[in-house]
Design a protein around this nucleic acid. Structure first.
Lengths: 95, 95
DNA sequence: GACTCTACTTTCCAGATTGGCAAGTAGGCG
DNA sequence: CGCCTACTTGCCAATCTGGAAAGTAGAGTC
């Protein structure tokens, strides 16, 4: 009835997935800077969402630099849409 | 920068304040039914938000029935607007 | 091939939250 | 004065969140 997704709702998670929704992938480091959280925190949120099937991560090497790329899966994108719809249903009552 | 209000963001809180935003006041019992939570949970959320100055509650008696009425204060209404604005800024990126 | 350096990952931990049950309380009614 | 209703509070377990610090793994270096 309410439909808020507890995997997505918490502030850091919401920032993470909404940030990712705008792009196909983002670098771990970029995300950490954008969200202003520690390595460990981002790593844990990412792996929780990977476990849930919402995110996918891959490692790549460019010019001797190893980076981890993170992106939404189709499942995650849909879950986000659903969550956003639920949030809108609540907040659109306001004003 | 993100601006999510931790007093409002949690699911039950968000349901509570958005429900209240549509009306001037609501009965405790009605809210408990609408939110599907126990007495104690609603009571605790309400009193936390009253302490924060976001809600106001008053008791009344009608036809031998005691009821507690709960409503947003101006401060609470503004906090909700701000919170909703912050949420929108995040979720409007989606799609 | 060993060493190092970086980029995460995992462990450990403390503190805060959330929720339900059950006991407590307070006001109105008979 | 006792009872009943309508919350309120205390107690507790489970979960979550975040940071620091230790651990790990792969790439480059020599």
């Amino acid at each position: 009835m309410v439909g808020l997704d507890p995997l997505i709702h918490p502030p850091t998670r919401l920032q993470l997935v909404t940030t990712l929704s705008a792009v196909s992938e983002a670098e771990f480091t970029t995300l950490r800077t954008a969200l202003q959280v520690s390595d460990s925190v981002l790593s844990k949120h990412v792996s929780a969402l990977v476990d849930a099937g919402y995110l996918r991560s891959r490692k790549s090497v460019h010019a001797g630099r190893r980076t981890t790329w993170v992106g939404l899966t189709d499942v995650g994108r849909q879950a986000l849409r659903d969550h956003v719809a639920a949030v809108r249903q609540l907040i659109d009552m306001v004003d």
